[in-house]
Design a protein around this nucleic acid. Structure first.
Lengths: 199, 199
DNA sequence: GTCTATAGGAAGATAGAC
DNA sequence: GTCTATCTTCCTATAGAC
């Protein structure tokens, strides 16, 4: 009854796992719930993956790849730094507003990784990845527009990551779109004020 | 063998639960692990608490009370707004640096509450509490020093909460004290620049 | 590879002797 | 109230027929 290759089953199981985790939370994404979501019998699980750990690793890899390519795609260079930053930040924020559950899942997986033996480095790698992507974004835009920053790029990148990450988290919990958008606008303007023409 | 009142047992079990959650994570804080930490037999649990849910509610209540009284105590009014804000923020940051596990637990409990049926409102209440406390802090300091803010207080409070919460989270995961402190200093200075003498 | 059936263990909660 | 022993359920993982 080989209706589908093991590779395709693996892909579908990872997708199903993400669906279940997004809908019901990481803790409820049991092997049973995942195979049920993928409409496969339970026994399938362990000839597609050696263990549940192996599946979760692939889930985290997939989620991270999505997040990074999202940030990459958000680079939106316009005529001025202010406009470029605003466009990029708004692109990100749009995604948060339309896909809150996806962002919530990344927070959950970070926590999961921080506690799960065998995933010790994963949370750190995840945040280093975000920070690196943001740093590259700032460098890229500085080069294209021939500007420099008043603050060291690592500090500026950390600042942006802090605001974006912190605001995403508290918006997921509290809502309050007007205040959240106001904070984001204020920070965008403030950061644009830290830019100098390259001499 | 009544060596201790049921009330005292309850208190000790809540303490033990916090110890286990801080050390091993919320998911590993099982009734068995908690009574073992408190050095009590398993059967004790269910005549002290009707269910595990009841214990977790008390744990969250205790943690929140700690957090709020910490923010209250951090209000540190000096001669100028800048100095007051700096002193208060440094007081908070000092606590993060010396008690990271405690702060990590609050993030874990927030996630737990967001997913656990019966705790739907708890995460929101928690963040509203933080935001309210920060707003009160800003109002208080504005009154004492007879100043106003360029931004509406709700937006400013949200901005501060975002930065403080986001930075705490990414410092727990990434470390990098110099950059984190630089971000905090920068934000403190920036916010101090948003203050006007009351006319 | 594919599936059913089940092992083996840990979770929350309860029964019932004292 | 106090404790031991146990119930029920659900988890990951495996055994073994096809």
């Amino acid at each position: 009854m080989a209706r589908m290759s093991a590779d395709e089953r693996r892909e579908r199981l990872v997708e199903a796992a993400i669906t279940v985790m997004t809908r019901d939370g990481v803790a409820r994404a049991t092997t049973r719930a995942i195979v049920a979501e993928a409409e496969m019998p339970l026994g399938v699980f362990h000839y597609c993956f050696a263990s549940k750990k192996e599946l979760v690793e692939q889930v985290i890899g997939t989620i991270n790849a999505h997040a990074v390519s999202r940030v990459m795609a958000m680079t939106d260079t316009r005529a001025t730094f202010r406009e470029s930053l605003r466009a990029s930040v708004q692109g990100y924020w749009e995604h948060v507003l339309t896909h809150p559950a996806e962002h919530m899942l990344t927070y959950e997986l970070t926590q999961y990784a921080l506690r799960q033996p065998g995933f010790e480095g994963v949370a750190r790698t995840q945040y280093e990845l975000y920070l690196g992507t943001l740093t590259a974004f700032l460098d890229d835009i500085a080069n294209r527009l021939a500007v420099t920053y008043e603050l060291p790029t690592p500090v500026l990148a950390r600042y942006l990551m802090t605001v974006v990450d912190g605001l995403t988290l508290n918006w997921i919990i509290l809502g309050g779109e007007p205040e959240a958008a106001a904070v984001l606008d204020h920070v965008t303007d403030h950061v644009a004020g830290l830019v100098r023409e390259r001499s």
